[in-house]
Design a protein around this nucleic acid. Structure first.
Lengths: 193, 193
DNA sequence: GCTAATCTAGACAGATCTGTCTGAAGGGTG
DNA sequence: CACCCTTCAGACAGATCTGTCTAGATTAGC
């Protein structure tokens, strides 16, 4: 598929992924059926099953695209920063920006994992994503010269996940981002930096 | 399997709640159907709909029973302790004990909320549970004499949620509990205690 | 203009879901 | 025993789900 589409319209695959991203993320993987995806994408059901072989593979592709999106967003946020400490804060600032998005609805991987079968593609995509973000924190912790980089990374990950969860489930409370930032400060200071 | 001579069978309601607790928690609210619940509970379908009016209300009752269970567990863990700082650690120690339970599967409220309709009973039960646990932390933070009790409570909640999530999704890593405890220490120390 | 490949809408199959209803079995109380 | 009332097993309705298949429309290359 060398993308020879000269048409103005996006490819069926891209339109399906966009529809999946909107609907799956907003309402959940289980509750959104195939019919609603193809209706929003403007694509025939046969085409969906031709491109992706099953709903599960569409879900996996949706999660991989979110993984990719988060990776590029965080890279962009850290791009012009040298200090690893400031890079870490940039990650949480970027997260705080997400919270203000009216379409924000928590972590897509957490939601998708809630009712996914063990050993399936969703679990696999989630494991990869979480390993990647933990590794991102671990490298920054190492650059920082933390006493125990992997422990600090795990702690930053705890705050990162907890903040995502709270921002989604405790909508009334707008101070989540600030509390998370102050928690990060405390953790960085405590890790003998 | 068992004796019907002396021991009275538990009520239909209790058996339904027990089956719901096992199946909903292990596999998810959406993926487990009514038929599997009544089969495990040994109860007729008509009885379920007689006791609870709908699946959603059964789910809400299941969540409320977990709320109650967590409340009594934490109360017991803090019972013999006076120092609020040690009470906070007792909460996280209790959580760590949960992680070692082979049936541990993350936070029931997070999982149930992942695909629940907005404004439904699941959202309501989740809001109540989260308000309760945040309030628990807030009272301890106040006893501690923290500079900003509600901020400290929010931060402890972040770590609490993040640890639950990580213990569920990053099964390989066993050091979650220790990292969480150290994070709590750092947060307590930073809040001018 | 013709052919071949692709995309379309939608019927269809088969399974599964929630919730209702029927009719029989069972246990406690007069 | 007769009565009442709960519970039982399971058929049934109606909706919805994933995935397959048919057949017409569209498009590209020649």
């Amino acid at each position: 598929m060398a993308s020879s589409t000269t048409t103005a319209r996006a490819s069926a695959r891209d339109r399906l992924l966009e529809a999946a991203n909107e609907l799956f993320y907003a309402e959940g993987v289980q509750t959104v059926g195939i019919d609603r995806i193809i209706e929003r994408a403007g694509v025939a059901k046969a085409s969906l099953y031709n491109v992706f072989g099953s709903k599960e593979e569409l879900v996996a592709a949706y999660l991989e695209s979110r993984h990719q999106g988060t990776a590029t967003r965080l890279s962009a946020a850290m791009e012009k920063i040298q200090d690893p400490r400031e890079k870490i804060f940039a990650i949480f600032d970027e997260q705080a920006k997400q919270f203000r998005d009216p379409n924000f609805h928590g972590c897509a991987f957490v939601s998708a994992s809630a009712e996914a079968p063990v050993g399936g593609l969703v679990e696999q995509a989630t494991t990869e994503f979480r390993a990647w973000i933990r590794n991102t924190f671990a490298e920054l912790a190492k650059e920082l010269g933390a006493a125990h980089p992997s422990t600090l990374a795990r702690q930053l990950h705890l705050v990162y996940d907890g903040a995502l969860l709270a921002a989604d489930l405790d909508r009334n409370e707008p101070s989540v981002a600030r509390s998370a930032r102050e928690a990060v400060e405390a953790l960085l200071n405590a890790s003998s930096v």
